[in-house]
Amino acid sequence: MGRMSTDLCGIRIDNPIIPASGTFGYGYEFAEWYDINLLGTFSFKGTTRQERFGNPTPRIAECASGMLNAVGLQNPGVDKVISEELPKLKQVFHKPVMANISGFSVDDYVYVSKLLDEQESVGWLEINISCPNVHGGGMSFGTTCEGAYEVIRAVKNECRKPVIAKLSPNVTDIVSIAEACEEAGADGISLINTLLGMRINLRTGKPLLANTTGGLSGPAVFPIAVRMVYQVSKAVHIPVIGMGGVSSAEDVIEMMMAGAAAVEVGAANLADPMACKKIIETLPSVMDRYGIENLSDIIGKA
């Protein structure tokens, strides 16, 4: 086992670096930039029962140290993901992949989860109960303990693979929602999804995003993510995946010290397609600088 390897809900991964859902497509775009097998794994594009085009454009806006997106879960639907995307991915990625799942009802979540649970290439099911860019689904399940419990419980009842609940930071008390997910049987928690934000075009005086609001990500949100990972990992007894603004090896170490067993990298992939490769390549020297022998030793050190 290498000094960067870590355990994620019973599956060993070579390193804790995981590109986050929605920033890495179904992987093969990035395989044109580098060998994506050097990743721990990655979380593929949020997948729903039906095909979705998503929100009208503009879907992207910038801000200081980050960006807003309001893509709205565009994806080809679970059937096409299984028949087209996963076979294409198999040609360039040879490790278990994390399936990211969204829905508009408990039944949707269970339907999609069951189908992806059966796929050999899928290692984990990351249940997105936190998308801020769709109406009547996504985040509405992740903002109450009851909603989160209900979805995670229903998925757990029907699936064998580790279930990771992806949480929204747009709540009053993220710890209680994490605890509800643990009680429902979640094998892990990932956080944070994006923070709800908005920008206005000064020329038109109207919202810049066609969807009015969008999810804020990038370095701007990193301290919030570190704080929430710290709070949640102190409260639950299952692994926590930390994400939110991570863009360097130093950020990875900080997130793990806060309590993360693994780290997802999101917006950084869009600004620099080589971001995760660079993080993985520089991690050993940064670990040396801080006297870290094995990354798993520092989880929750703070």
């Binding site: 929605g22 879907r59 893509v71 397609p273």
Partner: peptide, 27 residues
């Protein structure tokens, strides 16, 4: 043209519905 996130096909920020379905303007 469209506002883009990545510019290389990853983020689906610049999707455009054509007669042949959704296409990424960047890709």
């Amino acid at each position: 043209e469209e506002r883009m996130g990545c510019g290389f096909g990853a983020c689906m920020g610049c999707s455009f519905m054509t007669k042949l379905g959704s296409k990424r303007i960047c890709r």
